[in-house]
């Protein structure tokens, strides 16, 4: 597992699953909140840290997202310490 950890900053933890994790090459990335305000801002925020294939896969916002393990929308607000899950269409059962 790899990540980007900055001590003392307001951080967002991003979890990736299934094919999105495969595209990213990692299941977890931490980013400073910086100027990001909404979940959709993560797409830009991630672009310097992950392969372009992942950014392409996220750009249509067809994946589901969660914040602190509850389903949320791409327009949800980010906050310090948020755990954001980026969730491909589920296929259990």
């Amino acid at each position: 597992m790899t990540g980007y950890v900055m001590i003392g900053c307001v951080m967002i933890k991003i979890l990736l699953f299934a094919n999105l994790r495969d595209l990213a090459g990692t299941d977890q990335i931490e980013l400073p909140l910086g100027n990001m305000t909404h979940v959709r801002d993560l797409i830009t925020g991630l672009s310097a840290h992950v392969p372009p294939e992942l950014i392409n896969a996220l750009s249509d916002e067809s994946a589901m997202v969660s914040i602190n393990q509850k389903y949320a929308g791409w327009d949800a607000l980010l906050f310090d310490g948020a755990e954001v899950g980026i969730l491909p269409p589920v296929s259990g059962g």
């Binding site: 299934a18 969730l87 589920v90 259990g92």
Partner: peptide, 11 residues
């Protein structure tokens, strides 16, 4: 609901 809402992924 499990099939469409629960966070499982199959490969």
């Amino acid at each position: 609901y499990l099939k469409t809402r629960a966070t499982f992924w199959k490969k």
